[in-house]
């Protein structure tokens, strides 16, 4: 089992040093084998939390720590964190012309392996084909340039393809359901569920209970004003679907 532990995390946007903190003391523990859902209104720090865990250089940790099995990640660049087992399924994946999807995914897998132990090409292609079939992606998407000209739904599916090929310990999925129709949602969920197991944990950011009908979480957290203000089981999401967030207490600033 591997543990991701976030302790008293305070975060600012680096480019806005005089603005107030976006995260104001977040505490969260995710073990592999668990699925956590993070819900809450827009603009309250959910994406900031995911990006900060991953190591987006745009954010600055002003207090607190992020650890995997006791090892602090704060001084690690994004690529080192990725190799340690973190994966962020992004809301807006970058488009990169000239680099094919297959070439990129193979490079990502090989970055985790020793130079004399690179993944054999046939083995890689076989697994890529099988995974794309699971996600009902057309074969030509392997040879298309990375996210270039992909529709919103194709990009989301491509994030899950990378996730399934890379097999990280922890997947942070930032609104992986936005812009997906019901069929795509089912397929994407099938992909995430196929990874469930004792060596995989996930933090799923979503606004909608709908996704959580397909990927049933073990824990649901609600974030507001840069803090986690409520934690419960899968039922909490169903309850919020009816009641909304308004009645929940705010963070320190609103107290």
């Amino acid at each position: 089992m591997t543990t991701l532990e976030i302790t008293d995390l305070h975060v600012k946007v680096k480019a806005e040093p005089t603005h107030p903190e976006i995260l104001r003391g977040v505490n969260l523990v995710v073990h592999t084998g668990e699925i956590h859902a993070l819900m809450g209104p827009n603009g309250n720090g959910k994406s900031t939390l995911a990006e900060t865990i991953m190591g987006n250089p745009a954010y600055e940790v002003t207090q607190g720590d992020i650890r995997i099995d006791g090892q602090s990640l704060l001084d690690m660049p994004v690529d080192a964190r990725a190799r340690l087992g973190l994966f962020l399924g992004m809301q807006y994946p970058a488009e990169i012309a000239g680099v094919t999807n297959a070439e990129f995914i193979r490079a990502a897998i090989n970055a985790r392996r020793a130079d004399d132990d690179q993944v054999p090409i046939m083995q890689f292609l076989k697994e890529l084909d099988a995974t794309m079939a699971t996600l009902e992606m057309p074969e030509d998407m392997a040879d298309r340039y990375l996210n270039q000209g992909f529709s919103g739904g194709e990009k989301k599916r491509n994030e899950i393809l990378q996730l399934m090929m890379i097999k990280p310990h922890f997947a942070l999925l930032d609104e992986i359901d936005s812009g997906l129709d019901i069929d795509a949602l089912r397929i994407v969920s099938k992909g995430v569920n196929s990874l469930r197991g004792p060596e995989f944990g996930s933090l799923i950011i979503t606004h909608y209970q709908r996704l959580l009908d397909y990927i049933v979480p073990d824990f649901v957290h609600v974030m507001k004003d840069g803090e986690i203000i409520e934690t419960g089981g899968a039922d909490l999401a169903k309850e919020l679907e009816k009641t909304g967030y308004e009645h929940l207490k705010g963070g320190v600033g609103n107290a």
Binding site: P77, A82, F87, M90, A94, I96, A107, A111, I166
Partner: peptide, 17 residues
């Protein structure tokens, strides 16, 4: 950032871009 978030080292990511 996107390429590196998948574990690619900075020099490899730059070369790909």
């Amino acid at each position: 950032y996107y390429l590196m978030s998948r574990g690619l080292r900075e020099d490899t990511a730059k070369r790909l871009v």
